[in-house]
Computed example of a mutant assay.
Amino acid sequence: MDTTELAARAAALATPGGRRILGIAGPPGAGKSTLAAELVRALGPDRAVVVPMDGFHLARAELHRLGRADRKGAPDTFDVPGYTSLLTRLRTPGTKATVYAPAFDRTLEEPVAGSIAVGPGVPLVITEGNYLLHDAGEWARVRSLLDEAWYLAPDDGLRVRRLIDRHVRYGKDPGRARAWVLRSDEANARLVAPGRHRADLVVDGT
C-alpha cells in the first residue's frame, strides 16, 4: 500500500462533524513521523493534525532523578497517564476549545509543552509513536482510544541505518550512535513488535 492509498484511508476517517484518532505505531526508525507528516500534507491542516507520543517523554532532569537517563525511549520513560488523558480529551464529543499538545524537540532532546494546537473543527488527530499498541501496564489503555491503528514494518536493515543516521544528525558520533541503536533502540523494537497483531493495518516495506 503506497502513500496515496494510505492518505485515502486516512481521509475516510476525517469526516466533518466529529473527531477520530488514527494511531501509527511501529519500532524506532520505522518512518512513523514521516508518514504522519505526509498524511497531514495530503489532507491539509484543517482536516488533520499530528500529536506525537514523543511529546510525553519525561524531561532529562526527571530521567536522571529516576535513574533512567541511559534508557531514554523505554516504556517507563514517558508520562503515559498524561498521554492517555490528552487522547481522551481530544476525542471527547462537544469540545469547543482549542486543545494544546506537547511536541518533542530533537535538537534539545526535550518535550516542549503547548506546541501543537488542535482546533475544535479538526476532524482527525494522527498520533504516532512506538508504544501505541504495547499491551503492558498503562500503555494498554492507548489502543482503546484509537479509532484505527496502523503498524509500520519496514526492512530492519534500512530501519537501523535510518536510526544511526538520525542520532548522528543530532550530535552523536557514528560509533556512539550505532552502540545506542543496537543496545537501546533495538531493545525497544523487540518490545514493540508483538503490537503488530493489534493493528487494523500492517504496512510492510519502505
Rank of each mutant, 00 (worst) to 15 (best):
I126K: 00
L13I: 08
F78K: 05
E5I: 14
V51P: 03
R176W: 08
W139I: 04
L182C: 09
F78L: 07
A14D: 01
P174S: 00
F104I: 09
L87G: 03
V51E: 00
G29D: 03
D135M: 08
V51L: 01
G195H: 01
D105K: 00
W150V: 01
A42H: 06
V125F: 09
E110K: 01
G205V: 14
P120N: 12
G137D: 11
V51A: 05
D156S: 15
G121M: 09
V125C: 11
I21S: 06
R47A: 10
A25D: 04
A30V: 01
L158Y: 01
T34Y: 11
W180C: 00
E109C: 10
T206A: 14
P81V: 10
G82Q: 07
R60E: 14
A8R: 11
E186W: 07
A14E: 06
I21L: 11
D135K: 05
D76N: 09
V40C: 06
W150R: 00
A42D: 07
A140L: 13
V122K: 10
M1I: 14
D147W: 08
L158C: 08
V118L: 06
K32W: 03
P75T: 02
L87P: 01
G31Q: 08
F56W: 11
D165K: 02
S85D: 15
K172W: 05
A61P: 08
S144T: 13
K32Q: 04
L201E: 14
L133F: 12
T98A: 11
T88P: 10
H197I: 12
L152R: 00
L152S: 00
R176H: 12
S85T: 15
H64N: 12
R68K: 13
R198G: 14
V80Y: 03
G137F: 13
A189N: 06
V99K: 02
R143G: 03
